[in-house]
Design a protein around this nucleic acid. Structure first.
Length: 547
RNA sequence: GGCCCUGUAGCUCAGUUGGAUAGAGCAACAGCCUUCUAAGCUGUGGGUCAGGCGUUCGAGUCGCCUCAGGGUCACCA
């Protein structure tokens, strides 16, 4: 509650009531931190925004509000500028008041109940269990993981979910490949043409079955055998995926299998519901869904003329199930190549009577892998797409995650392996981790800071600036939860680190002959380290105590 | 052709839900270690925010048009 942002908003609302008898209910009041310090510690443009509502010129509104503000002893000065900005200059030791909360809340600092425990399900990665995760998945994986951490921290009840496409054609191909390899290992005749997945991993899987079961499946019941080979294939592929994700520090609460949707009858049930809703028709022997009624470019097939379902049906069923499980807000991370898919999915949701606005789809734009100025398409070692595992081993998990998280999702992104590999100043991840290591090395020497309401000896501009940045942290996280722009958090880390490095070279924290000053500065450094560590934790990046 | 994304310093990109004189890093140049970690700091130069029109007190940000690049348009998953 001692957050300066919140405090200012309350003061402004109060002044609006006193000066204009106006009660602000919409969120018209915004606090900004001017880039130019001569414009005050904080400023607001509310006089301009409220001009129409209050039927008054911005300057007049600002003036009358400022008369109220001047009665408050939080400020050393309040000024009105040009069109109607109000600039607040705050007493320095009042600014230091926010350190207390940081030092008390520690690893909880920055958390809030903003989300009011709304049930949110975030689905990401959801790669088919038919091979290794490659770099196309890495961006969405890092992003989804960081986003869910932030959503939890800001008070949402979050479920992290991975949808396993284990019912489609690709799994048949995997199972068949596995069976052919199985026969091959047993020196039985086999069909090279049926081996859709040429990878070594399939051979290893087949060897595993031979080791365990010998030739028992050669003459087994076909259905039983197919089921078994599918399960083996899926489980082992999924295990690999889970291991790679764990290495990359990405985890999930739940894996939902497409086949389980069929087994639970949700898919056929969805067909019935869609039919009942009256948006289906038969044409050319197929069953169609009239998605064009909901902004799709063309109608979509639900049941093909050969009687099998298209991918769309289980997917609509899956999203219906998400809502039915009690989640009021769904967030999906889709690759850019799936963007055309959103309209038909939302149409299905709408037809089934759910609100498509409660499904928020974030598009993960393309990633190009670069080595300097050359694009790298394939791994040199394996000749296949570069996997997440290779990336982590190559550049390290921290650098990999940082690079994927530091750009907005909707921008095309060139991942420069050379730069990420560099352990030097060119690589921003080390800049941030180095800042943390420097903070810790001071605190290791001396951590005799005190927790108190005000720190009157912290009067340097850089000290006040640092405190300002620290006190923005909670709001920063709330904004990220609202806007889903995780990259702002990497920017925040960079800003805080940069300010700290600058302060570090300018002022000594431990001043030999001034214990009182040292103690206050230590409190500031402690607060910096708490905030930076919390931020890095949310990004899934290690805060190293030593470098 | 329809839809989605992008266009900001030589290069890679930020840009606080429309705010005050558009910012970082790299690269270039000039400085700073007997002092808590120099993977750091300080300073200098560098811009028609692709282009145009509009919306208003105010536009890199919102709307429309043009140009350029990327992606995507299955009875595949």
């Amino acid at each position: 509650m001692s957050d300066i942002n919140d405090k200012l908003i309350i003061i402004i609302k109060d002044a609006l009531v006193k000066a204009f008898n106006y009660e602000d209910k919409s969120n018209m009041i915004m606090i900004e931190t001017p880039s130019d310090i001569s414009h005050g510690d904080y400023s607001t443009n509310c006089a301009m925004r409220l001009a129409k509502i209050l039927h008054n010129a911005p300057i007049n509104i600002a003036d009358r509000l400022t008369d109220e503000f001047k009665k408050n002893d939080l400020f050393t000065k309040v000024e009105v500028v040009k069109p109607g900005f109000i600039n607040f200059f705050i007493k320095k030791d009042s600014m230091t008041n926010s350190l207390k909360d940081i030092l008390n809340e520690k690893d909880k600092y920055g958390s809030s109940d903003f989300g009011k425990q709304e049930k949110v399900m975030v689905e990401y990665v959801s790669a088919n269990p038919t091979g290794d995760l490659h770099l196309g998945h890495a961006r969405g994986a890092a992003y989804g993981d960081a986003l869910t951490r932030i959503l939890k921290f800001t008070g949402y009840d979050v479920l992290r979910e991975y949808y396993v496409n284990d019912a489609g054609h690709q799994i048949d191909v995997l199972a068949n490949s596995l069976f052919e390899r199985y026969k091959q290992i047993l020196n039985l005749p086999f069909e090279e043409a049926n081996i859709g997945y040429q990878g070594k991993d399939v051979i290893n899987l087949a060897q595993g079955i031979v080791d365990k079961d010998g030739n028992k499946w050669v003459n087994a019941d076909i259905e039983e055998r197919e089921e078994y080979f599918k399960n083996v294939g899926i489980n082992l592929e999924l295990d690999k995926i889970k291991k790679d994700l764990a290495l990359y520090r990405v985890s999930f609460d739940n894996f939902t299998s497409e086949r389980s949707l069929y087994k639970r009858g949700l898919v056929s049930n969805t067909i019935e519901c869609l039919k009942k809703a009256g948006y289906t028709y038969t044409q050319d022997g197929a069953l169609w869904l009239r998605t064009t009624d909901f902004k799709d470019d063309k109608d979509r097939v639900l049941i093909k003329s050969d009687g099998s379902y298209t991918y769309l049906v289980p997917d609509i069923a899956y999203h219906k199930d998400k809502f039915d499980r009690g989640y009021t807000h769904l967030i999906n991370l889709f690759g850019a190549d799936h963007h055309g898919y959103i309209a038909r999915l939302k149409a299905g949701i709408k037809i089934l009577g759910y609100n498509p606005d409660n499904l928020e789809v974030e598009i993960v734009q393309m990633v190009r892998i670069m080595e300097g100025d050359k694009e790298v398409k394939m791994s040199k070692r394996t000749g296949n797409a570069i996997t997440i595992r290779e990336l982590c081993e190559d550049v390290g998990v921290d650098a990999a995650r940082y690079f994927f998280l530091c750009k907005p999702l909707d921008s095309h992104f060139d991942f420069d392996l050379e730069l990420a590999r560099k352990q030097s100043s060119e690589n921003p991840i080390y800049y941030i981790q180095y800042a943390y290591a420097r903070m810790m090395s001071i605190l290791k020497k001396d951590d005799s800071y005190e927790i108190k309401d005000y720190y009157p000896l912290l009067t340097k501009d850089k000290e006040i600036e640092l405190i300002k940045v620290l006190s923005e942290f909670k709001n920063e996280l709330i904004n990220i939860s609202k806007n889903k722009d995780v990259n702002s958090l990497t920017n925040y880390c960079y800003k805080l680190s940069s300010l700290f490095h600058s302060y570090y070279t300018e002022e000594k924290v431990l001043v030999e002959d001034n214990i009182a000053l040292s103690k206050e500065r230590l409190a500031l450094i402690k607060a910096c380290s708490i905030t930076l560590k919390n931020a890095l934790n949310l990004l899934g990046i290690e805060a190293k105590e030593k470098m």
